[in-house]
Design a protein around this nucleic acid. Structure first.
Length: 836
RNA sequence: GCGGGUGUGGCGGAAUGGUAGACGCCGGGGACUUAAAAUCCCCUGAUCCUAUAGAUCGUGUGGGUUCGAGUCCCACCACCCGCACCA
């Protein structure tokens, strides 16, 4: 029996070599075939491929192989998002150079990917840390610089006062530096920004054309861009100055009871010069991190200044506060506080005992209804507001804007939540920003013929801070204009810039420029882009912006980079812990009956929640170990089975065992293929034809779990059937349909059946439309809304016949018990519902 | 805090407003075998029951619309993702 088993340990490598030698998956830009660009988000080379990668790339691989079977010229490339903080952390901890660490990780991970048999075009591989790649990126940066899309301004960073270094948000834990434990401060630095806000309207409108993106992602981007219309006007302050504020709720202006400015607002600074108590409050606001989540969950604090603002309609004075929840980056950095109808203002007013007045009510008669324990932000009728009384919220907004514009003290404006993209990072392992700071000419672009500006190799991480800043010679250069000594920019680019155009470089990689627009046009947009939901906003928005920016400056004839987007779920695993709360890895434990124990000493183990695989919880399974045991195809099949691809997939030992059994079941079925078999099997033939259509639909919808279920069903039916021509047809159909999912098994069986060539080059099986139609259907019969019986009827039977058949049913009569039939609802080919 | 999502047997899940639980896993029983592995067959939501039949309940919770709701509407609960320097 041993020779009748599929042995992946020899077969996998053999077919992987065969594909490589034949160049099966090398994409030809000049092919006449219709093009299909399938792309999965490229990985960060963290060290090892994990199951999340395997799932992501298996989905893309099935699509790529399927499209090829459907006659497309497929581009399915792979590369490395190779810049980033982990390499610097490794450098600090293990004393390895970030580049050496990264390249060694790439080598290992590439070998891992190759073992899984992905249909990738490795001839186009690159890493973003290759000077060739980041040199082209520097050229694109300068293009944008020259087009006025880059500028410099002061912006806040997290500053660790002990390590004297800038911290990423993830390095700030509970407001403290992750290494030093020191309380983090906000500090302002001059940084480079890209004008993504110039494209805000276009990025928003473009979402409407992205029909094949998940609704949720479009909605998230829409909210992130955050277009809002409102009123910008100035309060007259008691010291005679004007204070511009922006509000989206001008209709509630009569409910305003205070005015507040951000801690870094010029007025706050001015107040601090006169009021000795204001300074410490502003300093207090600088403590803690810079993230939105931290700012918004922090307790709302304010400082009451001696100034007041004059209400534009009533003339009443309102106190002016400096408040920690007002953001300098949004609107004008100052707000009017309407506690009755804004939750943040409500909490603030409650804390500082400010009036909370109702100016919106359900109904005009509810004008005096008391306010509850929270703000009422909903729709209603305006009350207690003089000339606005009785108006709807919408009409009142328009009326206030009109009066402000007529009176010349304010105007209706559009404000965006989206902020310009800060791209400066005070780090070594990134793309050097190709700018020279000249003493005479300020920032000057590095001349094109001096690109790439390469990172120096001889650096160290022995002291905190940016090694580029500390390097003895690297930053010293000359001004391209005056020739006088000048300093290089020592900040590097945000790694999101690297991933904002890598898909263009995959499609076209001339040596002398970033990409060739004509060649790009052959492949772009990406037909299917697959990756994690965690990239729903930032990466995808930046890539959409970058593509537009390239088109804007005439480098590209593409606007939207990704025609269809798919966001896959995570791979999860049960967790195991000892009594002391320490985590154990899956291979340290075993199950005895219902109980888990540690293999080493039999200590009792608690099996806990199923969560995302992570090193910290030790619930990781290494793809290499699984492939050693079961081969690539069983792992690929597991990745596609059961869970819908957009949801989480729980890894289990039992599950992979089941996949392994199915691999062997298929092998035996293929072995039972008998070219000499004759005879009919109408039912099996029909099922095979139906499955061919359904599986194709499922793959195109990325519903791999459904395709898998249908293949199980057809396999079961073919196994049970007697040899016949129909059975042979079904077996060949199954072989071809599983070939994108289990390519090694399929090639091996294909060859064993004596077929020529590679199944990777084969076509998707054809179906006969006449074989798809059933001639009998099962009809459900309901009474009192419950199923009482089912009957079989010819497809398309008239309603009267179905009604008669239903009423004739013995079970139905028993349920009716002679009750009067008041109504019969008949849905043809579906059901009969009897109402009594 | 704000924005987005998810919730169906022991588990993963299926189901154009029309037979809830397809398909897989786990579990139980049986066949084959000296035995084991492998393989094959049958059963498998809960409760009741006069038990090859039948009844009731059941898709996170509470309401509603409908002849009919997992699916549509309203309110709530739990968990997950993102929040601009993680990638």
């Amino acid at each position: 029996m041993t020779e009748n088993r599929f042995d992946p340990s020899t077969a996998d490598g053999r077919w992987q070599s065969a594909w490589e030698q034949a160049g099966t998956f090398t994409a030809d830009s000049n092919s006449d075939k219709p093009k299909s660009y399938i792309l999965e988000m490229f990985p960060y080379p963290s060290g090892r491929i994990h199951m999340g990668h395997v799932r992501n790339y298996t989905m893309g691989d099935v699509l790529a192989r399927y499209k090829k079977m459907r006659g497309a010229e497929v581009l399915h490339p792979m590369g490395w998002d190779a810049f980033g903080m982990p390499a610097e952390n490794a450098a600090m901890e293990k004393k390895v150079h970030p580049g050496a660490w990264t390249h060694s990780n790439i080598e290992g991970m590439k070998a891992q990917l190759k073992r899984i048999g992905f249909a990738l075009d490795w001839t186009r591989e690159f890493a973003t840390c290759d000077p060739e790649y980041y040199g082209h990126e520097q050229a694109l940066f300068l293009d944008m610089y020259e087009a006025g899309l880059v500028y410099r301004k002061s912006s806040e960073v997290n500053w660790d006062p002990v390590d004297m270094t800038v911290l990423a948000n993830e390095q700030v834990i509970d407001g403290k530096g992750w290494r030093s434990g020191a309380e983090v401060e906000k500090r302002k630095l001059d940084q480079w920004f890209l004008k993504i806000t110039d494209f805000a309207e276009d990025l928003l409108e473009g979402l409407g054309n992205l029909k094949d993106w998940p609704d949720k992602v479009r909605l998230m981007q829409e909210n992130w861009i955050g277009k809002s219309s409102g009123l910008e006007f100035s309060f007259e302050l008691s010291n005679g100055e004007k204070l511009p504020v922006y509000t989206t709720r001008p209709d509630t202006i009569f409910g305003a009871s205070f005015v507040a400015v951000a801690a870094d607002h010029p007025i706050a600074k001015a107040v601090a010069e006169d009021d000795p108590l204001a300074g410490p409050f502003i300093e207090e606001c600088k403590k803690g991190g810079t993230t939105a989540a931290e700012l918004e969950t922090a307790e709302k604090l304010g400082f009451r200044t001696q100034l007041s603002a004059r209400h534009p309609f009533t003339g009443d004075p309102m106190p002016l506060f400096i408040a920690n929840f007002v953001l300098m980056d949004y609107g004008t950095g100052a707000v009017m506080g309407v506690p009755g109808h804004d939750q943040r203002d409500f909490e603030f007013a409650t804390k500082y005992a400010l009036p909370i007045e109702r100016v919106v009510a359900k109904d005009a008669t509810d004008a005096d209804a008391p306010m509850g324990n929270e703000a009422e932000a909903g729709d209603g009728v305006i009350v207690n507001s003089e000339f606005l009384d009785g108006m709807s919220v919408e009409d009142a907004k328009a009326e206030v804007i009109k009066r402000a514009e007529d009176g010349g003290w304010g105007e209706g404006t559009t404000v965006w939540r989206l902020r310009d993209w800060g791209i400066s990072r005070q780090r070594y392992w990134g793309t050097p920003i190709p700018i020279i700071h000249s003493p005479d000419h300020g920032p000057v672009p590095v001349p094109r013929d001096q690109l790439p500006v390469e990172l120096p190799e001889d650096i160290d991480f022995d002291t905190p801070g940016n090694p580029l800043e500390r390097h003895p010679t690297w930053k010293h250069t000359t001004c391209p204009i005056s020739g006088k000594p000048a300093l290089r920019e020592t900040d590097t680019l945000d790694t999101f810039t690297n991933s904002s155009w890598y898909f263009l470089r995959f499609a076209s990689q001339p040596p002398d420029k970033p990409f060739d627009a004509e060649e790009i046009a052959k492949w772009m947009p990406v037909q299917h882009y697959i990756g994690g939901i965690e990239h729903a906003i930032l990466h995808l928005l930046y890539a959409r912006f970058w593509t537009r920016a390239m088109a804007h400056i005439g480098k590209l004839d593409v606007k939207e980079p990704f025609a269809a987007l798919f966001t896959q779920g995570m791979v999860t695993h049960e967790t195991y812990s000892l009594g002391d709360g320490s985590w154990l890895s899956p291979d340290e434990v075993s199950k005895d009956g219902a109980d888990w124990t540690r293999i080493e000493d039999g200590a009792p183990v608690t099996a806990g929640r199923v969560v995302k695989m992570s090193k910290s919880k030790k619930n990781v399974v290494d793809p290499d170990a699984i492939i050693d045991q079961y081969g690539a195809d069983a792992v690929r099949w597991f990745m596609l089975s059961d869970s819908p691809p957009e949801r989480d997939l729980p890894w289990s030992e039992a599950g992979i065992e089941g996949c392994w059994r199915f691999v062997q079941r298929l092998w035996r079925l293929f072995d039972a293929y008998d070219p000499a078999a004759t005879g009919e099997d109408k039912a099996l033939a029909r099922k095979a034809h139906q499955t061919i259509v359904a599986v194709a639909e499922d793959i195109e919808a990325l519903s791999f779990n459904k395709a898998v279920a249908r293949l199980y069903e057809l396999t079961g039916a073919a196994e049970k059937a007697e040899p016949s021509e129909a059975r042979n047809f079904a077996i060949r159909a199954i072989l071809h349909m599983v070939s994108p999912m289990m390519p090694h098994l399929a090639e091996e069986a294909h060859a064993k059946m004596g077929a020529d060539g590679l199944i990777a080059d084969a076509e998707w099986p054809a179906h006969d439309p006449a074989m798809l139609v059933e001639d009998e259907v099962t009809i459900a019969i309901q009474h009192k809304g419950k199923l009482r019986d089912t009957i079989t009827a010819p497809k398309g039977a008239p309603k009267e016949d179905l009604e008669a058949l239903a009423l004739a049913s013995e079970k139905v009569q028993r349920s009716l018990q002679g009750a009067e039939v008041r109504k019969v609802i008949v849905v043809p080919d579906r059901l009969v519902n009897i109402v009594t």
